[in-house]
Amino acid sequence: MDVLVIGGSRYFGKRVIALLRESGHRVTVLNRGSSGVPDGTGHLVADRDDEAALESVLAGRSFDVVLDQVCYTPRQAEIARRVFTGRVRRYVMTSTVEVYAYEDSAGPVPESALDLASVAVDTGAAWDDPEFRDAHYGEGKRQAEAVFAAGAAFAWASVRVAHVLGDDDFTGRLDHYVRRVRDGEPIAVPAVNRPATYVYVEEIAAFLAWAVEADFTGPVNAHSHGPLHTADLCAEIERQVGGRTVFREVEVGEVSPFSFARSYGMDNARATELGYSFSHSSEWLARAVSDAVGAAR
């Protein structure tokens, strides 16, 4: 297949590209040119926010599948929906667990918990402002999904990715815990601290590569079995580096990353029904922590 990957040439994106190439697919990466692409991979340079530039660079080109790693706003989704009409058979958007920001279910949340038809799309918001976009990350993804779901002329799917742990984590979230546990510094958590679903970096790369080759449509939750609590992460860190976990419960104010006052548990039954077998978090948690420990030294 001819596969176009938009953005995402770092972290798990580079792993997806490698897996697709190993499977024999012809892979082209489209980005702004600020970062290179792996050897043997095609390269198109354009700003995805510039519709005319996209039309120009894609002139005469078509693809079997697009994997969009960097669609963050409804405005970007609308541009993509127009530009790729007639140029692609299937479009896979990398989304996020954050689309469930308004859910607080006692049990794992299925894809149907979010009715995309009811999502209000506001393309006039300040989506070009990086601070606004970052502050409305989950909402931007919700609205982007809603744009595609409302009437794309190609088959469309979204992969709602859980919190990712593992090597090359540029967010520094697990590193935050490693340093604080090692040094015995307090970790701010909500008074009622809920578990969340996670996925290892290698596993989400494998799932996205699988999704490119699959033919399902609509949203699918992607995460390992076995939700994790903040205490689970800290217990593994203690096992590897020693130190002492000191939790400081706060009623209001900022808490540590991976500490949640509401449930962030997704239900991955649909992915299982589609034929994908996720691992259990207990199979890779030690590796993920080891990655973070090495980075914190």
Rank of each mutant, 00 (worst) to 15 (best):
D49P: 01
V66N: 02
R48W: 04
F12K: 01
F12E: 02
V29R: 00
V37A: 09
S23A: 15
Y11H: 15
H43P: 04
A18F: 02
V29S: 01
N31L: 05
G60S: 12
R32D: 10
V65A: 06
H25F: 09
R32P: 03
D47A: 10
V16P: 00
D47G: 08
R10F: 10
H43V: 05
R61Y: 06
L54S: 04
P38E: 07
L20M: 08
S56C: 12
L44V: 07
R10P: 02
G13R: 00
V27M: 03
H43C: 11
A53M: 11
R61V: 07
G60V: 12
S56L: 13
E22P: 06
S23Y: 03
V27T: 01
I17E: 01
R61G: 03
L58M: 10
S35M: 08
V66K: 00
L30Y: 05
D64S: 13
I17Y: 02
L44T: 08
G36M: 09
P38H: 06
D64I: 03
D49T: 13
R32I: 05
R21Y: 06
V16F: 06
A53L: 09
G60K: 12
G40L: 04
A52V: 14
S56K: 15
P38D: 06
A18I: 07
A53W: 05
R48K: 15
H25I: 04
A52M: 13
G13D: 01
K14E: 13
G40D: 09
V16M: 05
S34G: 12
L19N: 04
R32V: 08
V29I: 11
H43G: 04
R26A: 14
A53E: 13
V16Q: 02
T41W: 01
G42P: 03
E55Y: 08
G33S: 10
